[in-house]
Amino acid sequence: MTYLEILRSAVYALMERDETYLYIGEDVRSGQKGISDGFFSKFGAQRVIDTPISESGFCGMAVGLAVNGFRPIVEFNFSGLMFVCLDQIFNQAFKFKFMTGNKRNVPIIYLMPTGTKGGLAGHHSDNTYATLSHLGVISLMPACKEQIPSVMDYACSANAPVAIFLPVEEFRSDTVYDIADINPFFLRLKCGDDVAIICTGTSISTVNKFFNTASKSIVRRTALYCVSDLNLSIKCLDEIRHLKEKTIVIVDDATEDFGFASQIELEIRRSKQHECPEIYTVCRLSNLVPFREGLEHALRPSAERINEVFLDSGLLGGKA
């Protein structure tokens, strides 16, 4: 099964288990994104709610539903659309509980397809998760299908507004990972003693491409971890702080400035002041994503750019 199919069945199971879950968004009745395929015929128009193109309106409506007995799941067309309704996510949903004396939970799940498979240009390519992390909204990004159920469980138990970012590049992926400890925060995907690559859902496929082209010795000596908890809460931080490798390469397809990779780097530096590992980052170079293939490729993390880091810094026998 693919990432998308597992996602669909996880949401389906949720809807089946508890009638207070409602599925809301544009074109969800026909299931255009593939997440809500078949929901309408199973759960009906009361629970699968097709909306006009009114993100601000229906995100506000979700707040009203959530404070009045329901658990809306709000599907976005793409994560960049958070900018047309951020007030309802941050000022309203996120702050509502606090503003009412901590007396009322606001359980909303926002499903946000994020990033690009290429060719989507300026308005449809963004990875906007650090925006919500910065604002303090609980945010998660399952990097592989194995992780989706645990992320969904965690999002439900949070009883609060939670954004789940869904890397569109993984939607059709059926890569199987052998993960000992599946949790919604931090995954150990591969062992290796010398270098650690830390990836996210938007860079996991790029890192896999790198491993497919790298030398045997690099592959053997490089560990791969994945951060899925976009707020770097304590369970995730504990893992990051205990990494033993002397060199760390952080790969993420969002921009680095004031961003997610920088935050990971900061947390590592804070926790290992005396024997800080060498840290490199491979991130998206700008928030202006060009349409032209070559320019777009150069802007985003790639196997080539990860390889350059190994070469330039002479890691694991890569020449300096």
Partner: peptide
């Protein structure tokens, strides 16, 4: 017309 930076939607 947009130097190939925009594509179909821009």
């Amino acid at each position: 017309c947009c130097s190939g930076l925009g594509g179909s939607m821009h």
